[in-house]
């Protein structure tokens, strides 16, 4: 199954892409982790890389950061080699786990990062503040909770004031409260126009925080579009209405719905163009109490990933 929904923002495409992956393949011995991904991300987009474990998300992130080299294809970040972009502070990342030393304090860790990027000491305080951990600056990293450590990684990632921020499964292992706080901080930050790419397998996160969702499965992009587009592509929406004396076959012919169900006085019409279905019902029939619901992203995700045949190119 191939599903593509290009967001209608081609007009802005003139600017240099923040990320340009072209035919990227990554093999580890006999295992192909990434199997031909081409992806362009424009400055300012907030993109979710969504997929099950082992789909190739982390490998893709590693290649964007210059931590891994593609076997084939090219990776460009703001027109540069990934490692150069990282060294210049154009791109930074919040990694999944590790990457912290227990015997540094929170503040020292951020200060060291400031030193490494050649930033003034004040920038460390600012980053601590923006990540919401200024109050635990004196605490040893080893004594911080998972959520606090993650916000520390976020503070470190903010230090170079990157154009592009990459988050790899940023909320793994956080409780609900920690997850909420973390996304609040990211969201506040993204309002300044930073490009954000986050890899996740939490569907609700992709749904709630991304402008664009890129589904990855078995090292390939299976779908690409806004969360709403992808959801409707994957599963369509359902219109529910109260309509007495409806006939299933009749409704199917007139509305173009894929599936029609009549339960007493209630009808359920399932299809991709629910606007047209609703228009028909309201204009041409005495239907009332209309309700349009989409399946949540979780169901869309299952629909997309349950298909076990190789996706056609």
């Amino acid at each position: 199954m191939t599903l593509t929904a290009t967001p209608g923002t081609a007009a802005r495409g003139a600017a240099e892409p923040a990320v340009d992956l072209d035919g990227v393949v990554k093999r580890f011995g006999a295992v192909t982790a990434v199997d031909g991904i081409s992806l362009r991300i424009r400055p300012g987009e907030v993109v979710a890389l969504l997929g099950p474990n082992g789909a190739g998300k982390t490998t893709t992130v590693d290649m964007l950061l210059g931590l891994a080299q593609p076997t084939e294809g090219s990776v460009r970040v703001y027109g540069r080699k990934p490692h150069d972009a990282v060294a210049l502070g154009l791109v930074s990342a919040v990694m999944q786990t590790g990457g912290l030393l227990k015997d540094y304090t929170v503040e020292e860790t951020v200060r060291l990062t400031a030193v490494l990027f050649g930033k003034p000491p004040g920038s460390a305080d600012e980053a601590l503040d923006r990540a919401g951990i200024a109050d635990i600056g004196k605490r040893l990293v080893g004594k911080c909770s998972g959520g606090q450590q993650q916000r520390l990684r976020f503070a470190m990632a903010l230090l170079p004031d990157p154009e592009l921020l990459i988050l790899d499964e940023p909320t793994t292992g956080m409780d609900v409260g920690g997850r909420h706080d973390f996304w609040q901080a990211i969201r506040r930050d993204a309002q300044g126009g930073r490009t954000v790419i986050f890899a996740t397998h939490y569907l609700e996160e992709a749904d709630a925080y991304a402008d664009r969702v890129v589904f990855v499965r078995r090292g390939r992009i299976v779908a690409d579009g806004t969360a709403a587009e992808v959801k409707s592509l994957a599963s369509g929406r359902t219109v529910r209405a109260t309509l007495a004396g409806a006939v299933e076959a009749d409704l199917r012919d007139r509305t173009g719905a894929e599936k029609v169900e009549v339960r007493g006085d209630t009808v359920y019409l399932h299809g991709r163009d629910t606007d047209a279905i609703a228009r028909y019902l309201l204009n041409e029939t005495p239907a009332r109490d209309l309700e349009i619901t989409s399946r949540n992203l979780e169901e869309a995700f299952l629909t997309l990933t349950a298909d076990d045949t190789e996706p056609a190119k």
Binding site: G66, L67, M95, G98, L100, L101, K102, F117
Partner: peptide, 17 residues
């Protein structure tokens, strides 16, 4: 050795160091 085990060396690769 400790810094490699903690993933710190990898973190440092995300800096200009």
């Amino acid at each position: 050795s400790i810094e490699r085990a903690a993933g710190w060396s990898r973190q440092l690769r995300l800096t200009p160091l």
